[in-house]
Amino acid sequence: MFNIDKNKVKHANLFAAGLALGTVGLKVLTSKDAKKVYANVVAAGIRAKDSIMQTAEKVQASSGSILADAQEINEKRRQDEALFEEEESDEK
């Protein structure tokens, strides 16, 4: 009497199950408990960002100090080399 293709019934059942699961999932994701979890995750992300920014500022300050020291060393070295070259030319 009915000529039902088992493959089509299987696909229809999978679709219905997916629809039901999606509906339940949407309810779970919008629940008050889920929103609390989302808020805690976002708060942890903000704390991590703040910590990273503080570390980056410390590194930046330290690298500025290192750069100034390196420039001072190079300037002293240039002066020493110039003085050494003057002494060599005076000896000749």
Rank of each mutant, 00 (worst) to 15 (best):
residue 51 S to C: 02
residue 36 K to S: 11
residue 64 G to D: 12
residue 45 G to T: 02
residue 70 A to D: 07
residue 43 A to K: 14
residue 55 T to I: 08
residue 66 I to F: 04
residue 52 I to C: 05
residue 38 Y to M: 06
residue 42 V to Y: 06
residue 61 A to F: 05
residue 68 A to D: 12
residue 56 A to T: 07
residue 37 V to K: 07
residue 71 Q to L: 13
residue 68 A to G: 00
residue 68 A to S: 14
residue 63 S to V: 13
residue 66 I to M: 07
residue 51 S to F: 02
residue 67 L to V: 09
residue 35 K to D: 11
residue 57 E to R: 10
residue 71 Q to V: 05
residue 68 A to Y: 00
residue 62 S to M: 07
residue 51 S to M: 08
residue 54 Q to H: 11
residue 50 D to E: 15
residue 45 G to D: 07
residue 46 I to F: 04
residue 39 A to Y: 06
residue 42 V to W: 03
residue 62 S to N: 14
residue 37 V to W: 04
residue 59 V to L: 15
residue 38 Y to E: 09
residue 57 E to M: 09
residue 69 D to Y: 02
residue 37 V to P: 01
residue 54 Q to N: 15
residue 61 A to P: 01
residue 47 R to A: 14
residue 51 S to K: 14
residue 41 V to P: 04
residue 46 I to T: 14
residue 44 A to L: 11
residue 39 A to N: 10
residue 66 I to K: 09
residue 47 R to G: 00
residue 40 N to W: 02
residue 52 I to P: 00
residue 37 V to L: 10
residue 37 V to H: 05
residue 66 I to H: 05
residue 38 Y to C: 05
residue 52 I to T: 12
residue 38 Y to V: 06
residue 48 A to M: 11
residue 36 K to I: 04
residue 37 V to R: 02
residue 63 S to F: 08
residue 63 S to I: 10
residue 59 V to Q: 08
residue 54 Q to R: 14
residue 41 V to L: 14
residue 57 E to K: 12
residue 43 A to W: 01
residue 49 K to T: 07
